[in-house]
Design a protein around this nucleic acid. Structure first.
Lengths: 160, 160
DNA sequence: ACAATATAGTTCACCGCATGAACAATGTCA
DNA sequence: TGACATTGTTCATGCGGTGAACTATATTGT
């Protein structure tokens, strides 16, 4: 009669699973909203913003690399790059080592834009931190790290 | 000379903001992947899955309500409902109180599908919890709650 | 009571995002 | 050297989504 009541355990896990789902969904919704806010602020659709961000730390990228990192078809990468070239943010140059390849890079205007976007995003996350007690921040971050790891584990299992 | 070094503070916030951004992005990516996995598993696009979920706890919904909750145009709601009606998961009936209105509800097949989807999602989140030490779970959940609240605050400020 | 206005749902034309196939130019391999 | 692979582009197509126009119906104001 000294057994811990397993019914309470099941109920607790049930509550926690539902709570977790709710919280993850809500945070995901916030992220989606942020993405659209950025698109509006910078006058660029999400795909183009995402593309620009790829050049951070890279002098050149190829269309193939862009397609791979954005997880889109080659032809889609062409369209996105075309649009950004038209807007003066990216430029194309031939690759001296392989005549099939085009090297894509940020224009000076594109570099300024990327910096602007990064500063906005950084500022946003700083503000987010500002809403949290300084003493709590390490805990929040490590909690997210645990959750991120847990997600990666489940993801790996689901792909068997 | 006993001042706390403010440079360390700035560096810390910078590190934490960047870390936070990275973690949130990664979790968001995981969520997007989960959405596509579900679409594949249940053979329904995300919009239709999301529409089905709206009926949880509701005997009827109108197309207007569906459009509002999904945050899409009326015409888009019509298309989504049409597709689900065609698949035998939703049905339409006239509203006895207002001849303009169609009452949309789950078919028995739709109910089973919704239950199936909910069970899968619940199972997924339970597994996620299973990757976390039981003693840590309340902490993870409250950390997410703090973060969720912080996000809502920033969101409210950005909409002024 | 009736005309003006609002509402619900549908239809339709259109746009943006994304795919895959086909292609030409170029590179690699047998 | 020919067969095969790769890169980037073009093009046709499909899906998700919008807004306008429309019909039927409800509501409001005179």
């Amino acid at each position: 009669m000294n057994n811990v009541n397993p019914q309470i355990d099941v109920r607790l896990v049930e509550y926690q699973a539902n709570k977790l789902q709710e919280l993850i969904n809500e945070m995901n919704n916030c992220c989606q909203e942020r993405i659209y806010l950025e698109a509006k602020m910078f006058g660029l659709p999400p795909s183009e913003l995402k593309c620009l961000a790829l050049f951070d730390g890279h002098r050149y990228l190829t269309a193939m690399t862009v397609a791979g990192k954005l997880e889109v078809a080659k032809s889609r990468a062409t369209v996105i790059i075309d649009n950004l070239v038209r807007k003066g943010l990216l430029q194309r140059a031939p690759d001296p080592n392989d005549a099939r390849v085009k090297l894509v890079s940020l224009t000076p205007k594109g570099q300024r834009k990327v910096r602007e976007i990064e500063e906005f995003v950084f500022h946003l996350h700083s503000q987010l931190l500002g809403q949290i007690e300084a003493s709590q921040r390490p805990n929040i971050i490590s909690a997210l790290e645990v959750l991120r790891s847990a997600m990666e584990s489940i993801k790996a299992q689901l792909q068997v």
